[in-house]
Design a protein around this nucleic acid. Structure first.
Length: 435
RNA sequence: GUGGGUAUAGCUUAGUUGGUUAAAGCGCCAGUUUGUGGCACUGGAGACCGUCGGUUCGAAUCCGACUAUCCACCCCA
């Protein structure tokens, strides 16, 4: 197939028949975040490459091999954002958002870009709902962030999503842990797989996560990060857990969660599922106490998460969670002849101005075909207009469900008259509900 | 970057050991006597059978390469 009719590898169209699902989710996320006191931030799709190198971390896979990086005509290296946090931090610093008082609570719904091999529920362009809380070391902030995600899933009716929790400590205790870990794996070096041998230097914690049977067997007896936490980190983690307990949020401790972005400290968590193939992480996040300082600001303990919208929708699909479909056409006006066609055009315009959904023929179809079309788009009412109707200023309004017809005037106040009929139709459907 | 699977209309698929005009369902468009949809019936449009090359009298079918796509590793949302 020709290139011009082919989407770029790893990208996806949201088609007209599905866009209401995205709209629903996005609306809910905005509302939910707002309930938690978060405000939306919108940052550019691209940033200076250095931002991600420093922010996400030079040694990470994301920076080393997955970024869409290119030079502008002016010779500046820019990169399509691979995640949302770095840009949010940049904006926080550039606009001194912390001067409005702490904590700064922001959220975003944006596209992200990673040059990776495409897979089920993994795309090169994907969308994240993310939140960030800047300027609080308090473990209750950790609990709040986790609770926001948890309650969002609950609100959507999602089941079987497991919250996995870990603490990877602060730089101080982590250094000690990594040393112990390295020593341990060093003694098994000849048994490890190739990838893990290279991880030994780069990030030994990743070996814990290896799927190879031999490596995971070795990893079973490896030192556990939680045993190496300093007093402060231990206390922090204990409090996070107790806050979650008090909110009745269930979690499992998974000492193997390490996260692939360098900026994480202390609390890290993932919401995972087994029903999405190998891309089971729907939401991942944690604390990043060093990041703001790393990017040139004052030390500012912070945290957040990213939630994959494609994965969320896939999971909802999997669990057969229905999203209410958009309203169908309220009134279809069919016409015969040019004079009536012009009249129908004016009538739908009136209806639309009263905020109802109306259509007329703009294809030039036969009456029969127009009626078929009206049925196809799910029109609730229809009207047929010909010369007689135009002359007499009256027509038959047909209820498409029952087939019943009533006479209506199609003059000046047609819209009002239709509105009356439409409201009583709604009441028949849903009963006499208070609005 | 490394493995494995798949490639036929917009979608889902059939295509017999290679044999002439590549088939069906859904969807789309039109019509079934003049001004009323759903059902039914009839007809139509739509496929260089992923691309290039090879074997053969003859390839959608066999072989090779490439490309795309899917799944897994990896990584992560």
């Amino acid at each position: 197939m020709a290139l011009i009719t082919k989407k770029v590898y790893g990208t996806q169209d949201v088609l007209p028949k599905d866009s209401y699902k995205w709209q629903f989710i996005e609306h809910l996320m905005r509302e939910h975040a707002t309930n938690y006191g978060f405000k939306e931030i919108r940052t550019p799709v691209f940033e200076h490459t250095e931002l991600f190198q420093r922010g996400v971390g030079d040694t990470t896979d994301v920076v080393q091999k997955e970024m869409y990086t290119f030079d502008t005509k002016g010779g500046t290296s820019i990169t399509l954002r691979p995640e949302g946090t770095a840009g949010a931090v940049r904006s926080l610093l550039e606009n001194a958002l912390y001067n409005d008082g702490l904590p700064v609570k922001t959220f975003y719904i944006t596209s992200c870009y990673r040059y990776e091999k495409k897979q089920a529920n993994r795309y090169r362009e994907f969308h994240q709902f993310g939140i960030e809380v800047f300027g609080t070391p308090d473990p209750m902030a950790d609990a709040e962030v986790i609770m926001l995600a948890h309650s969002l899933f609950e609100r959507l009716g999602i089941k079987d999503l497991q919250l996995e929790l870990n603490s990877i400590g602060c730089p101080k205790c982590r250094a000690e842990y990594q040393k112990a870990l390295r020593e341990y794996f060093e003694s098994h070096k000849d048994e490890l797989c190739d990838t893990c041998i290279s991880r030994l230097d780069k990030n030994p914690m990743r070996i814990l996560d290896c799927k190879s049977p031999i490596c995971s067997k070795i990893a079973e007896n490896a030192p556990v990060v939680l045993d190496y936490l300093c007093d402060d980190c231990q206390d922090h983690f204990a409090k996070v857990k107790s806050y979650l307990d008090s909110a009745d949020i269930h979690y499992v401790i998974n000492p193997k969660i390490v996260r692939g972005l360098d900026y994480y400290t202390k609390t890290v968590f993932e919401f995972v599922t087994t029903s999405l193939g190998s891309q089971g992480t729907v939401c991942g996040g944690g604390r990043y106490d060093g990041l703001v300082e790393e990017l040139g600001g004052q030390p500012m303990p912070s945290l957040g998460f990213g939630l994959g919208i494609e994965r969320l929708l896939a999971l909802m699909e999997e669990q057969k969670i229905e999203i209410e479909e958009p309203e169908t056409c309220d009134l279809y006006i069919a016409s015969i002849g040019e004079k009536a066609k012009v009249k129908s055009f004016n009538m739908v315009s009136q209806i639309r101005q009263s905020s109802l959904y109306a259509e007329c023929d703009i294809v030039g179809r036969s009456l029969r075909a127009q009626m078929k079309y009206a049925d196809k788009i799910g029109a609730k009412f229809s009207i047929v207009i010909g010369d007689d109707e135009v002359d007499s200023n009256t027509a038959l309004l047909k209820n498409m469900k029952t087939g019943e017809k009533v006479q209506v005037s199609i003059g000046e106040n047609f819209a009002e008259e239709f509105m009356d009929k439409f409201i009583s139709y709604q009441m028949d459907l849903f009963g006499d509900i208070e609005i």
